[in-house]
Amino acid sequence: MATLKITGLQVSVDDKPILKGVNLEIKAGEIHALMGPNGSGKSTLAYALAGHPKYEITGGTIEIDETNVTELDANERARLGMFLAFQYPVTIPGVRVADFLRHAVSNRRDPDRKEGENLIPMREFRKELKERMGELGMDTEFARRYLNDGFSGGEKKRMEILQLAMLKPRFALLDETDSGLDSDAVKVVSEGVNRLCGPDMGVLIITHHERLLEFNKPQFTHVMLAGSIVETGDASLAAELHTNGYAKVRERHPEEAAEETSEQEESLASV
C-alpha cells in the first residue's frame, strides 16, 4: 500500500527554523487533518512536501513508498504522485487551462516524458477533461481560459480540485482549500474531494476551520504547535478544537506554547 512517510522533518525559511522535526505517516485511503493556530507551520509543511525551493529541508526525510524524495525537485515529486492544492493558486496569463493540464497529465502518466515528446492524445484528453469538469459543475468554457486569470476565489479553488481530479495523485495536500469560500463552494469542493478519495489516494487536509472536515471525515487529526505535531487523535479532536480553540492544547503543551509566544514576540520585534 502506498505510503507517504515523513520522518524528523526540519525546515527553515530564510535560515529561520520553522518545522522542528515533524513525523507523519499517511497511507493511501486515509484522510488526515492537520490543524493548528496561524503561524504554527502547517503551510510550511505543505510547501516543503511539495518541494518549494524557498523551504529548505535541514533535517529528516520525505519518502513516497520506499523512495526518498527529500532531494527531488517539485516536478519529480509531482510525477511520483505528490499533489499540493494551493491556498493561493497562482495565475499564469496567456496559458490556457487545457494546454497546461494536458502537459501536466502527460507528465504524470508518463513520468519519463521529456519536453517536446508526445502529449496524451487530444481526443482522449478532452473527453476526460469534459467529464471531470461536469462532475465539478464547471463550465467547459473554463478549459479555454487562461490559468486562474480573472478567476474568482471559488473558481480558483475549483480549478485546484479539477487538477487533482485529472492528475490522480497518490497523496493530495489540501492547503486551506476551504478558506475564502462560501458554504456552497465548500460543499462543491468537498464533494469533489470525496469523489476522489478512495483506496488509491491519501489526503492531508490543512485547515483551521472545521467545515471541510464535516464533509470529509478524517480518520486522524494532528495538531501542530510551533513547528511540531503535538497531538494526534481522531475526528473528535478536530471537533473539540473547533469548539474550544487551542487554549487547552497550549495548556497541555506548555513548552511548545512558550516557544510559540517567544517566536511571535521575535517577529513583532523585527517589524
Binding site: H52, A78, A104
Partner: peptide, 10 residues
C-alpha cells in the same frame, strides 16, 4: 513552482 507542482519541468 506552481507549474512544477503539476509535473512540468523547470
Amino acid at each position: 513552482f506552481y507549474a512544477m507542482c503539476r509535473g512540468l519541468t523547470e
